[in-house]
Simulated scan of single mutants.
Amino acid sequence: MLPIPQRIRTLAATASVVKLTVDGVPARARGGVDERGRPVLLALPGEPLHGLHRLHEDAVVAVNLAAMRRLGDDEHPRGLMEVQGWAQPVPAGEARAAAVAVAANTADEALFDALERYGRPDAPRLLRVDVAQVVYLTGQESGVLDADDYLDAEPDPLAEPAERVLAHVNAAHREQLANGVSRHLGRPAGEVWLWELDSRGVTVRADGSLVRFLFPAPTSSGSDLEAALNGLLCTCGHHPAA
């Protein structure tokens, strides 16, 4: 399994903003996650966060993120995270990158207005969270990461190819996957889906339970990742790990 800080950063990189509270009060949530894992928020005139006109006016916020996995017609949560900290205006030089991060999860025409009229009192505003800590729940693991552990971690460099391979196997090769997993477990595995795939191994969902298989050695490229996964499908030398 990836180290917890790296795993949470990997999940956050593709997560959606599902809930926002400002100074303990629920607020409308529009946003995404930037390249450092910080939630980025779009605030419209009249909303609580829009009133932050100066950098020293920080609002205490909690941003709830959800990383989901689609299995057939259903979506299931892979990881839930609450990023706690302070909302601060995005500097002008970083506004475009922040807008792109928001647009990845929330396509809102107000983003254009926020960029074109940046800094005007009546324009939509872009803010990001100065992270204090991250509370997480993923699978059977839960805990709290402090800001340094979270922000210093890098997402799994193979996350993008892993997602492509995972989607392909779940769409076209579930029978082979089920056969391979059944042989490893020594019993019929029932309904099997790939749940997580990373540089160190694969987690499958078999009849609703998660089972982890480690690769013999960490992979370092997309082709190595595919080869290691093929080893699992062919029952070549993998062993389940808790």
Rank of each mutant, 00 (worst) to 15 (best):
P3C: 08
P3D: 15
P3A: 07
P3Q: 13
I4P: 01
I4T: 10
P5T: 06
Q6Y: 11
Q6V: 13
R7T: 08
R7N: 09
I8C: 07
I8F: 14
R9I: 00
R9A: 03
T10K: 03
L11Q: 08
T14G: 14
T14Y: 14
A15P: 14
V17T: 06
V17M: 04
V17D: 03
K19L: 14
L20E: 13
D23T: 07
D23C: 13
P26Q: 11
P26A: 11
A27N: 10
R28Y: 09
R28C: 14
R28S: 12
R30V: 05
G31K: 13
G31V: 00
V33A: 01
E35R: 05
G37S: 08
V40S: 09
L42V: 03
L44T: 05
G46W: 01
G46F: 04
P48T: 03
L49M: 10
H50A: 09
L52I: 13
R54T: 01
D58S: 06
A59H: 04
A59S: 03
V60T: 15
V61G: 01
V63F: 13
N64M: 11
L65M: 08
L65R: 11
A66L: 12
A67E: 04
A67R: 02
R70A: 11
D73S: 12
D73W: 15
D74H: 09
E75R: 15
R78C: 14
R78H: 07
G79K: 01
L80I: 09
V83T: 03
G85N: 05
Q88C: 09
Q88V: 15
V90H: 10
P91Y: 03
P91M: 08
P91E: 07
A92E: 14
G93T: 10
G93V: 13
E94D: 12
E94R: 08
A95Y: 11
A97I: 07
A98F: 09
A99N: 02
V102G: 10
A103I: 11
A104V: 05
N105V: 06
N105E: 03
D108N: 10
D108F: 02
E109P: 02
A110M: 02
L111S: 04
F112C: 10
F112S: 08
D113E: 05
D113S: 00
D113Q: 01
A114D: 00
A114S: 02
A114E: 00
L115E: 00
R117I: 00
R117T: 01
R117P: 02
Y118I: 00
G119E: 06
R120K: 06
R120F: 03
D122G: 02
A123H: 05
A123R: 03
P124L: 00
R125L: 15
L127F: 02
L127G: 05
R128G: 04
V129E: 02
A132T: 15
V134H: 03
V135I: 12
V135T: 15
Y136T: 14
Y136W: 07
L137D: 14
E141A: 09
